[in-house]
Amino acid sequence: MKITILGPAHPYRGGLASIMEIMARTFLRRGDEVLIRTFTLQYPSLLFPGKSQTVTTPPPADLHITRCVHTVNPFNWWRVGRQIRRDRPDFVLLKYWTPFMAPCFGTIARLARRNGHTKVLCQIDNVEPHEHHLTDRIFNRYFLRTVDGFVYMSEQVHRELEAYTRAPALFSPHPLFENFGERVPRAEACTCLGFDPALRYVLFFGLIRDYKGLDLLLDAWAELKRSGRTEGRRLVVAGEFYTAREPYLKRIADHGLQDEVLLHDRFIPDADVKYYFSAADFVVQPYKTATQSGVTQIAYQFCTPMVVTRVGGLAEIVPDGRVGYVCPPTAEGVAAAIDRMYEGDTLERFRQNCAIERRRFSWEEMCSRITELYRTVAAQQQ
């Protein structure tokens, strides 16, 4: 098949770019022809909360990546859409995670499918965004109603999607992030990060946004500290702030946690991710809202147990009491789950179970579902 992938890719950084590149490689291994069309501009600098959107590493030599999409230039959308229409791929695969992309993606999709051959498929992360804006529903309708079929990764997303469209939709769980490598010995990981191997580490990982509940985790840690249950342990917060930093620093200071919270508040390069997950006893995702999360799949990649809150689709991916604990999205709930992780042989048992559970998260399965979706859509439209 001839496939155009439209979304983040090199030189754009982060998990979304990794996902699109890994899917492209998987389709290539299956014998498909794949072109990735990525951005010349993804977010205007005024709308981007981080320090940098791109990396300086060389582009991957095994992928055909073209930078051609400008998300805020309607004339560019017409040019790209017409080009894809002329190229006549069997399908365009888009990654959709925010309504901000809807005007751009929706216009390109409408133009591309006018050739009567190309289908528009979407791997969808979110329908309703975590941080809401007045234009969300208008933008969602514009994009979602032009898509021929969807692959979703949580039932919450599927339910939200059905409010906009009845296009075919198939479930496939978020695959593992194999691009981060394999687990390394804990001592090696601690050395690389400058950690004291005599201490135990609990990890909060990823971009820091308010909905991810770092405040709940800090309150939970303070509760554990007051009862003397953090001795010999440290909380590692590894990720760049995409929200105001000061309220979190104040919370740390107010709770007297300066010596117990290791704040690595920066973008974590791909090459360093394995050290954080190999050094940590477990990772905590104290989210207040969620659909699914790439952090759980990184944890599975490194067989790192998890504490997650009972929101969105997190509990679908993290079986409670098997690879971690699912708890209420409260400081008390998170504190209790952290405490339980250190009981008996829990951590070792959960690590072993992670190695079993991870087998169901494969990129081959994801690409098979996308191919199945394409065939379903093509058959319906004949």
Rank of each mutant, 00 (worst) to 15 (best):
E188C: 00
F150W: 03
Q381F: 05
L134C: 06
F150P: 00
T38E: 12
A163E: 13
D148M: 07
I317R: 08
I298A: 14
A379G: 03
T57P: 00
E365V: 06
R310K: 03
A378C: 02
M1N: 06
R340A: 14
P60V: 03
R114Q: 15
T57R: 00
A238F: 03
L224C: 05
M341G: 11
L16R: 03
E316P: 09
R369K: 14
P103A: 12
R209A: 08
G344C: 00
C303G: 03
V261D: 14
V69P: 03
L214T: 04
R30H: 15
C104M: 14
T243L: 09
K274P: 00
I19A: 10
Q42E: 10
L262W: 06
P286T: 11
G321A: 03
Q53T: 12
D339A: 15
K212I: 09
L216M: 09
C367A: 13
E240I: 06
G7V: 09
M20S: 03
M306E: 13
G324Q: 08
N73A: 09
P247E: 12
S362I: 05
A244L: 15
L63V: 02
Q292Y: 04
G81W: 08
F282R: 09
F204Y: 15
Y142F: 14
N73K: 14
E182A: 11
Y242K: 06
G294E: 14
R67C: 11
F75Y: 11
Y276T: 05
V261T: 10
V202S: 03
A109Y: 08
P319I: 06
E178V: 13
V92L: 11
I356P: 00
I317L: 04
D87I: 03
R226P: 01
T4Q: 07
E231N: 12
S227D: 09
V295E: 01
C104V: 02
E240Y: 06
D215K: 12
G14M: 05
R349F: 01
T107R: 02
R369C: 04
D90V: 01
G31V: 10
Q42K: 06
P60A: 04
E316W: 05
D148A: 01
V236N: 12
G321H: 09
R37Q: 11
G14T: 04
Y325P: 01
Q83C: 02
T309D: 04
R351C: 00
P8K: 00
R226E: 14
A279V: 05
T107Q: 04
I370S: 11
R82T: 12
T107H: 03
F177E: 09
K225N: 09
S172W: 01
Y152H: 11
L111Q: 10
I138M: 13
A238V: 07
F205N: 14
F48S: 08
R358S: 11
W77G: 09
K2V: 08
A290G: 03
D254F: 10
E131Y: 12
L47N: 11
D215Y: 10
T56M: 10
D270I: 03
V184L: 13
P305V: 07
Y164K: 06
L16K: 11
I19E: 08
F205E: 12
L207Y: 11
G313V: 01
R340P: 03
T71A: 05
P74Q: 01
A109R: 05
S362N: 08
A187E: 13
R233T: 02
I84M: 07
T57L: 02
Q382H: 10
T376H: 06
V308L: 02
A315V: 07
P49I: 09
E182I: 01
A109F: 04
